[in-house]
Computed example of a mutant assay.
Amino acid sequence: MLRTRHQPKEISATLRQVDALTSHGQSVADAIRAVGVPEVTYYRWRREFDGLQSDQVKRPGQLQAENARLRRIVSDLKLDKLILAEVAQGIY
């Protein structure tokens, strides 16, 4: 089964569209079906992106990338520190 990645703008537009349909009296389940997104996906998106504008939706992905980069830096620095401590003790 082909998996498609939805862009942040598409996600926020879909959430707004479901909100608009529910405000016109349609049930949430019917609105989700009308948009064409699985219910599980809708609720996951709602949990992660609800209330965010389309430019803010990109932010969590950027934060995760920044977090990964900082973790690599910290692990490299810890390794350097351990090597220097061993050299200072005269082990090598």
Rank of each mutant, 00 (worst) to 15 (best):
A68T: 11
V18Y: 03
V74H: 06
E66N: 08
Q62A: 14
L15V: 06
E10W: 15
R5D: 08
L21Q: 06
L21A: 05
K81C: 14
I91T: 09
N67I: 10
R3H: 05
V37S: 02
Q17G: 02
Q7N: 09
G36M: 06
I83R: 14
E48K: 15
I91Q: 04
Q17L: 15
A13R: 14
K78W: 02
E66V: 13
R47V: 04
Y92N: 09
S54Y: 11
R71F: 07
P60A: 09
A13Y: 11
L79T: 15
M1A: 08
K78P: 00
E86M: 13
L84R: 15
D19F: 07
K58V: 11
R59E: 05
D19Q: 13
D50H: 14
E66Q: 15
I32D: 01
T14I: 15
T14P: 01
R33V: 00
D76F: 13
Y43S: 02
A20W: 09
K81E: 09
L84P: 00
L77F: 10
T4E: 06
A31N: 00
Y42E: 02
G36I: 06
G25V: 04
V87I: 14
S12P: 01
R59M: 10
S54H: 10
I83Q: 06
R5P: 02
R16A: 12
V57F: 04
A85Y: 02
V18W: 04
N67W: 10
V35G: 00
G61Y: 08
Y92M: 07
V35N: 00
R44L: 09
D76C: 11
Q17E: 13
V87S: 01
R5T: 13
I32W: 03
S54M: 09
I91M: 06
L79G: 03
E86P: 01
M1Y: 03
L15S: 02
K9V: 14
A68M: 11
R72P: 00
Q62Y: 14
T14W: 10
L84S: 09
